[in-house]
Design a protein around this nucleic acid. Sequence first.
RNA 1: GGCCCCAUCGUCUAGUGGUUAGGACAUCUGGUUUUCAUCCAGAUAACUGGGGUCCGAUUCCCCAUGGGGUCACCA
Length: 478
Amino acid sequence: MNNIRTRMAPSPTGEMHVGSLATLLKNYAFAKKNGGQFILRIEDTDKEREVEGGVQAIQEIVRRYGLDWDEGPGKGGEYGPYIQSERLDIYKREVQTLIDNDKAYYCFCSKERLAEVKEQQMASKQPPHYDRHCRNISVDEAKKRVAAGEDYVIRLKVPADQEITFTDLLRGEITFHSNLIDDQVLLKSDGYPTYHLAVVIDDYLMKITHIMRGEEWISSTPKHVLLYQAFGWPVPVFAHIPVFLNPDGKGKMSKRKGMVSAASFLDRGYLPEAMLNFFMILGWAKKDQEEVISLEEYINEFDPSDLSSNSVAFDIKKLDWLNGVYIRKLSPEQLKEKITPFIAADFPADKIEQVLPLIQERLVTLADFNLLTKFFYGEINYETDLLLKKADSKEIVIQELNETITLLESLSDWSLTSLEEAIRGLQEKKDWHRGQFFMMLRIAVTGEKATPPLFETIMVLGKDLVLARLKTALDKLA
RNA sequence: GGCCCCAUCGUCUAGUGGUUAGGACAUCUGGUUUUCAUCCAGAUAACUGGGGUCCGAUUCCCCAUGGGGUCACCA
């Protein structure tokens, strides 16, 4: 097999969508599996929608997810430049050969006229279509008008009455009819290429062998095939990857229904490893059905033709589960490093290392840290009634609190074993109801019904804070 | 609406011309546990419908239905 080359070609028009990153992962894995190259190319041909810092942001997010590219911005490579706005002369040169070969033509229609034509077509219930008004203007005349300073675009001369068929790795042959395809604009009036022109030229010149992109590109593919044919270039292999649906399975995953940028998931405390793993198992299954998969295993086994051709719901619950799996796998050092950016600024630094093991298996995302640990410092608040839960009388609770305070005040060794021995001993000696007593203590000490193990928690809180809170509980009952 | 794509538990999937249709997440129930979480055990739950082909279709074909995508001088 010849050298496999894949690419991802995002536009710097905003934050990268999780779907784009999932597609990027597949391109990356397929290239790596075959010892080929994964290329990152920036498609910045829409200068109106481009956002500042966009090119940089793309590179940054790919790296934050732990991935990398072999050729592209910042890396160079044999087939550069890899930023389309730096390749304008290439597109002009190539489009000229199209004009010379009667595959493309100058069009002088104004946007106003185009809008009018469309409006009329809509009114008469015709499908909107460019009416090919300029298709038969001779090249000589066109050149005169260009020289006279008229605005123009270059359009593809789509042949009539042709079946256009291409092969999709997931779906097999797909056929479109050329009569349904517009004479696509190839070169815009500002001199920039459209996506359709640039993508074909670049994929050819960069020797891309496999085009894996979102399913939303299927209906554009016949235009690209036409272009390859017009240039006389071989058509690469296509694999159109199903889009992500909203978690409820309805509609393409969109900003309206939540955060969809690849960065936002990391910012909300999902681990890159968990995200990548999640992308792997959406629409694909490992041969042995295992769902916790390392990048290395994925690269070994992934093949685009095994991809499901269904659109898939972005199941946050499953992502949450995977994230928990990856968090639990972390060593204490790794956890501390990864969670530090999420820890509230006023959290007592000296307690972090003691607290982490208490909450590690309780974290769904790294950002849960503050919610799970807020009672380790600062004020706690709870309903007094909670102290009386399951208790026979208020007096018993008061007695329990008093005796616990006395016990802890005299406790010289504030270690886990000492605390457990003492408190458990007291409960057994007095024959207090276990569940009631420990829950009451938990509420008094943390203000929460669900916490890490009680003795560990008491130990980490420290003697002063624990005694103060027990006394506060007593006051609340008085 | 035109064109294109898709169709197995709620979700993501495995799978076969004859299977008790398997797994994971979610849900529910038990067990462990002073709570929660983890962990362990178990349960509920699917081949969209109708026609064919065939001795036999979830599997192959057609149609319907449903879902999705796309119809720019945006990518």
